[in-house]
């Protein structure tokens, strides 16, 4: 089976801003959505069977005091959990119907936020997915969401 992360469809949106360098060991994620390309890039790396996702906070993502904005963190969570869902439903697609986010700690400008999302249940219609987001091993965010499967792509 081809790996859609490593062999993305040709019509995917580009990774976004090429002036933001990838941290060592990370690869820019292809981004489907204009809004994700706008706030990106986001990154991924494979470790065994797991795919890790990350975003590096810069001034575009933070408030005037350098704290990561909740809206940006929820957007990264939606994108990250969405990747796991997409890998679970392809060639169909899915849309978010509900997301619950808990803000456990602070993330600051310059921080690399990492997550390994996990699909917790998959039915024909609904996907349950969750993720714990960490900075340097410390939890900063947890998110879970429900997605509705959309037939076709």
């Amino acid at each position: 089976m081809s790996d859609p992360l490593l062999n993305p469809p040709a019509d995917l949106y580009p990774p976004g801003r090429s002036d933001v360098p990838a941290p060592e060991g990370w690869t820019p994620s292809p981004l489907y959505d204009p809004f994700e390309a706008h706030i990106g890039p986001m990154f991924y790396r494979k470790a065994g069977d797991q795919v890790h996702y990350a975003i590096k906070l810069d001034e575009r993502h933070c408030d005037g005091q350098g704290n990561g904005e909740p809206g940006l963190l929820m957007t990264f969570a939606d994108a990250t959990l969405g990747w796991a869902v997409w890998l679970a439903v392809t060639p169909n697609s899915a849309v978010t119907i509900s997301q619950h986010t808990d803000f456990l700690g602070s993330a600051r400008v310059g921080d690399l936020i990492e997550c390994v999302p996990a699909v917790t249940r998959k039915t024909r219609e609904i996907i349950f997915v969750k993720g714990l987001f960490r900075v340097g091993g410390e939890p900063v965010l947890s998110a879970s969401s429900l997605w509705k499967v959309v037939k076709g792509s």
Partner: peptide, 19 residues
């Protein structure tokens, strides 16, 4: 720039507004 691939507002943007 606020859209998703389906041409609707991205969930991250609507959650940004909600917060």
């Amino acid at each position: 720039e606020h859209l998703n691939g389906g041409g609707s507002i991205h969930g991250g943007m609507s959650m940004t507004l909600a917060e």
